[in-house]
Computed example of a mutant assay.
Amino acid sequence: MATAGTDRRILVTGASTGIGEKTVRRLADQGYRVVAAARRRERLEALAQAHSSVEAYPLDITSDEDVAALAEHLSSTGGLDGVVNNAGGALGLDRVEDGDVDGWRWMYELNVLGTLRVTKAMLPLLRAAEGGDIVVVTSTAAYEPYEGGAGYTGVKHAERMLSTTLRQEIVGEPIRIIEVAPGAVATEEFSLTRFSGDAERAKKVYEGYQPLHGEDVAESIEWALGRPEHVNVDLMVVRPRDQASSSKIAKKGA
């Protein structure tokens, strides 16, 4: 396992926007070789054009075939030193009694099974490299409930259990399992997706206080990856100063 700035090759999923895009840029600036994976090819190619150490790889993490093809590609082109499981998303704020089964299923497929597919496929590559890192970007929603959030908190709790259980299962191997759990992060698409494109409602989520930005979380991820190889950052919770919990935010004028 190499340390930061020594040409390590890191896969970042959900790399076309938000935290994923900022993580790709941050890691590239710090000397990593980055494989930027997401569904939107044109955005990935723009990242690759801006950073010579970034490779664009179109990927749908809900597809077994796509993930298997990525693993084969990485294996045949130099292997892998780490993966940042960042792809995910929320949909709706429906109460349990009104739960949208299809929406909940979409969140589970993307956040939980997508992370599972990628992690399973990348583990053999990290073992072949004799060490590496698996970062799972969850959320403070993985640790606390809030009204209307059962669908999203449920999948993030499951994603957290995936990472913490894996840490127990492979303890003793030179592979670190790192969880980064952000609070409120203002990105261009998270709340817009959650509210089905309602830009006004999405904007109100971040009014009256200073939320985190994607760069803040990307810096946290890069810091955790850069620790000496005997140091594992099991969990890093990163919130805005004004956020005490998912349901308690100090907003001006509120």
Rank of each mutant, 00 (worst) to 15 (best):
G18C: 09
A87K: 04
R26N: 14
V118Y: 08
A28T: 11
G14H: 14
R25F: 08
P228R: 00
G151Q: 12
D102C: 03
E189F: 00
R160H: 14
G208V: 12
L192M: 14
E65A: 11
N85P: 13
V171I: 14
A184Q: 08
G92W: 05
L70D: 02
K156F: 09
E169I: 13
R43T: 08
K251I: 06
L11Q: 10
K204M: 02
I221D: 02
V67K: 02
A38F: 00
R9I: 04
R8Q: 05
L91P: 01
V231S: 05
R194P: 06
R176H: 10
W104Y: 14
G5H: 07
R40E: 06
P240S: 04
A250Q: 11
T138C: 10
A28F: 08
E55T: 15
I19Q: 09
Y146R: 10
R127P: 06
V84Y: 10
V238A: 00
V83S: 11
Q243G: 00
Y57M: 03
V205F: 09
V54L: 06
I134S: 10
W104C: 15
Q168C: 15
L93N: 15
E144A: 04
A2W: 11
G99L: 15
E159H: 08
E72D: 08
G154M: 03
D102V: 13
S220L: 00
R241I: 06
G154W: 09
R39I: 06
S247V: 01
V83Q: 07
A50G: 14
T138E: 05
G154K: 15
V54S: 03
D198F: 04
D66S: 10
T193L: 00
G151I: 07
I178L: 11
E42R: 15
V171R: 15
V233L: 09
K204S: 13
E55L: 14
L47R: 08
A142W: 04
P182A: 13
M122D: 02
L162H: 07
Y206S: 04
H73W: 15
E229F: 03
Y146G: 03
G88H: 01
N111M: 02
G78H: 03
R241M: 12
R95N: 12
L212K: 01
S52I: 12
S53P: 13
R160T: 14
E21M: 15
E147N: 03
I61T: 10
S75N: 09
W104I: 14
Q30P: 09
R105T: 12
R176K: 11
F190A: 12
A128I: 06
Y209N: 11
I61H: 08
L225P: 02
V112C: 05
A56L: 13
M161H: 13
G154A: 12
S245N: 00
G197L: 07
T187E: 04
R39T: 00
E65S: 10
A90P: 10
H230F: 02
G183A: 07
D100K: 14
A37D: 03
T17C: 07
A181S: 09
E42P: 02
E159S: 12
D66P: 06
A36E: 02
S163Y: 13
V12W: 04
G79Y: 07
A121Q: 02
V24S: 07
D7G: 15
S16K: 13
E97G: 03
G148T: 10
G20M: 14
L166K: 06
L70A: 01
E222S: 00
N232G: 00
V35R: 05
I249H: 05
